[in-house]
Deep mutational scan, measured.
Amino acid sequence: LPHTAVCLVCGEAGKEDTVEEEEGKFNLMLMECSICNEIIHPGCLKIKESEGVVNDELPNCWECPKC
């Protein structure tokens, strides 16, 4: 993702460097949905019932829970 990318919900950049544990890092890193192209911190999504499908081949790419 470009350095200028920010979260659609909170308007902040990736914050994964501020935590140690892997789950915390994931919730604070910016992810781009391969379907709707929205860039968001997974932790900013209010959807709890399902998780997005992470694409292991492309960094910061997933199918968000909304899609």
Rank of each mutant, 00 (worst) to 15 (best):
C36G: 01
E32K: 14
C44G: 01
G14I: 04
A13D: 08
I47A: 11
V9F: 06
E20S: 07
K66P: 10
I35T: 14
L45K: 04
F26K: 06
N60G: 10
C36E: 01
M29T: 05
K48E: 14
V54P: 10
G11I: 01
P42K: 05
N37R: 14
C33H: 07
E16K: 07
K46Y: 12
H41G: 00
L45H: 07
L30P: 04
L30Q: 05
E49A: 13
T18L: 11
E23V: 12
T18C: 07
P59C: 10
I39Q: 15
G14N: 11
E22W: 05
V6N: 09
E23F: 10
K25M: 06
E16S: 07
C36R: 01
I35E: 04
D56F: 12
C64Y: 01
L1Y: 15
V53R: 08
A13M: 15
E23I: 01
C64L: 00
C61A: 13
N27R: 11
H41C: 01
E38V: 08
H41V: 00
D17M: 15
E57A: 13
C7Y: 00
I40V: 15
G14Q: 11
C64R: 00
L30H: 02
S34A: 06
H3E: 15
G11R: 10
A5E: 01
D56L: 09
H3W: 02
D56S: 13
L58A: 03
H3S: 10
E23D: 11
E32H: 13
F26A: 07
V19I: 08
E21K: 12
G52E: 11
I47Y: 11
G14F: 13
E21H: 15
C7A: 01
G24M: 15
C33R: 02
L1N: 15
L28S: 13
L8G: 02
C36S: 00
E49G: 12
G24W: 03
M31T: 04
A13E: 15
M31G: 03
K15V: 03
V53H: 05
G11M: 05
M29E: 04
E12G: 13
V54L: 09
N55W: 04
C64V: 00
M31N: 01
V54R: 12
S50F: 12
C64T: 00
C67W: 00
P42L: 05
L45V: 09
V53C: 11
S50V: 12
E16D: 02
H3D: 14
C61V: 15
V19L: 12
E32I: 10
C36Y: 02
N55H: 13
G52V: 12
V6L: 11
I47C: 08
L1F: 15
C44Y: 00
I35M: 12
C61F: 05
D17A: 07
K25Y: 01
P2D: 15
E21R: 12
E22A: 12
W62P: 08
S34F: 10
I39K: 11
V9H: 05
C10S: 05
E16P: 11
E57M: 10
N37M: 10
E22H: 09
N27S: 09
C64G: 00
I40Y: 06
K48R: 08
V9L: 09
T4G: 02
N55G: 11
G52D: 09
C67K: 02
V53N: 08
S50P: 13
H41I: 00
H41L: 00
P59L: 10
E51A: 10
C10I: 00
C10A: 04
L58T: 14
G14R: 12
G52K: 08
K15P: 02
E21Q: 05
C61S: 12
P59I: 07
C36I: 03
L58K: 14
L28T: 15
L30V: 05
L30R: 07
L1P: 15
P42S: 02
I39W: 08
F26E: 07
W62Q: 02
A5T: 14
P65L: 02
V9Q: 02
L28V: 12
C36H: 00
P2W: 15
E12H: 01
P42C: 04
K48V: 06
E23P: 05
P2I: 15
E23K: 14
C64H: 15
C44H: 07
S34V: 10
C61Y: 13
I40A: 12
D17K: 07
N60A: 07
G24D: 09
G14E: 04
P65H: 05
K25H: 05
E49S: 10
I40W: 03
K25D: 01
K15E: 07
E22D: 08
N27V: 03
G24H: 15
L58G: 07
E57R: 10
M31C: 06
E22N: 08
C33M: 02
S34W: 03
M29K: 11
C33D: 01
E22P: 03
I35V: 12
V53G: 10
H41R: 00
E51K: 11
T18M: 09
E21I: 02
S50T: 06
K46I: 05
K15L: 08
V19N: 02
I39T: 10
I47P: 11
E32V: 05
V19H: 06
E63T: 13
E57W: 05
E51T: 13
V53A: 12
N37G: 13
E22L: 11
C61N: 02
K46R: 12
P42R: 08
G14K: 06
V9K: 13
C44L: 00
V9M: 10
D17E: 10
L8H: 06
P59Q: 11
K66V: 07
I40K: 04
S34E: 03
D17W: 03
S34I: 10
G52Y: 10
N37Y: 14
A13P: 15
E16M: 08
T18E: 03
I35D: 05
K66A: 04
I47R: 07
K15H: 02
G43M: 14
P59V: 12
P65E: 08
D56C: 06
E20R: 12
C44P: 01
C67A: 01
C7D: 00
N37Q: 14
S50A: 12
L58C: 13
G52R: 13
C67P: 00
C67T: 03
E32A: 06
I39R: 14
M29S: 12
K48A: 14
F26L: 05
K48N: 15
E20A: 10
F26S: 05
T18G: 04
V19D: 03
E21F: 02
P65R: 04
V19F: 14
E57Y: 07
E32N: 15
T18Y: 04
V6E: 04
K46D: 15
M29N: 04
E49Y: 07
P59R: 12
I35N: 05
N55M: 07
D17T: 07
W62L: 04
I47L: 08
K66T: 10
E63I: 11
A13K: 14
E38S: 10
D17Q: 09
P65S: 07
G43Q: 04
E49T: 12
E20D: 06
E23L: 04
E12Q: 13
E32D: 05
D17S: 09
N27D: 10
E21D: 11
